[in-house]
């Protein structure tokens, strides 16, 4: 793998002035930007390779099924429990604020819109990155460190086709389903707090929600978001695993990078997509 272009040339000792410091700072920035660009280039080429070698994943769907199990089924518990809690907190906080304006009946709207548009896709993706993404990175990284990928290559089996692509598709398929489950459970949590605990009218809770939530603008956009997050997180996870240095530190470092990079990318993509989707409203 490419080593960092070492551009940090020390400013000359006899001229340590403001210019020297500025120059060092600029060089630092330039080196960082170059490294990021090089890495983005790698990820781009890697993504193309993953798609190109996706044939076997669909010809033998059992491979993907296994990965849906590990990425999706095993994330079910953390996703549903977190969804329930987030929904309940939204219910409590939302009620507290709305009741001051005499519009506690709008609680259903608040809970549903927050979850469908933002919290469902974003929080589910963050949890997915730390639960499934890190596991994918660690697994692929360890396969690399123990030469399993090299062994596969020597057996004339392409590791991207056999190991990476099924995990990628497993994650991409699981993520929107997990986000939907998160939102649904969250709305139920809001219902528990709003109707069963606080005592709002069940009918108005649902009808307010239904009149405000739009199928296309809210639900569909949320699903699109979660799909994009699924692609981003899984791609980062498989890339970091495949790119990991084949040592213990290499794998642990890659796992950490998966979680951190995923979180940043999820939030950045969320800003962009929110700006595009909900601009007119």
């Amino acid at each position: 793998m490419a080593t960092e272009p070492q551009t940090a040339i020390e400013p000359k000792a006899d001229r340590p002035g403001v210019l020297g410091t500025l120059r060092a700072a600029l060089e630092h920035l330039g080196g960082w930007v170059l490294r990021v660009l090089i890495r983005l280039g790698y990820i781009g080429r890697f993504a193309v390779a993953v798609v190109r070698f996706s044939g076997p994943s669909f010809a033998r769907f059992g491979l993907v099924m296994r990965e849906i199990y590990f990425a999706g089924v095993l994330s079910l518990v953390i996703i549903s429990v977190s969804g329930l809690f987030v929904g309940m907190v939204l219910g409590l906080q939302g009620y507290d604020t709305l009741v001051r304006y005499g519009s506690a009946n709008a609680l259903g709207t608040l809970v549903a819109l927050s979850l469908l548009r933002e919290l469902g896709p974003v929080v589910a993706a963050l949890l997915f990155a730390s639960r499934a993404g890190s596991a994918i990175t660690a697994e692929i990284g360890l396969m690399k460190a123990t030469e399993q990928l090299a062994a596969m290559e020597m057996m004339a089996v392409e590791p991207i086709a056999r190991v990476v692509a099924p995990r990628f598709w497993g994650g991409v398929i699981s993520m929107p389903l997990l986000a939907a489950i998160f939102s649904a459970v969250g709305i139920f949590g809001g219902y528990v707090v709003g109707v069963l605990i606080v005592g709002l009218d069940s009918g108005s809770f649902w009808s307010q929600m239904q009149s405000a939530v739009d199928l296309r603008d809210d639900l569909l956009n949320g699903v699109i978001k979660s799909f994009v997050f699924g692609v981003a997180v899984t791609l980062i996870a498989v890339f970091e695993g495949y790119d990991a240095a084949p040592t213990a530190e290499g794998v642990s470092g890659a796992t950490t990078r998966t979680v951190v990079t995923s979180a940043l990318v999820i939030l950045a993509l969320d800003v962009v997509m929110t700006a595009l989707m909900f601009r007119g409203i």
Partner: peptide
């Protein structure tokens, strides 16, 4: 890949698929 099909390799620690 066709050439590697005629090749067998044994890695240092076996490299079995875990």
């Amino acid at each position: 890949y066709r050439m590697r099909e005629r090749l067998g390799m044994l890695f240092q620690f076996g490299a079995l698929f875990t």
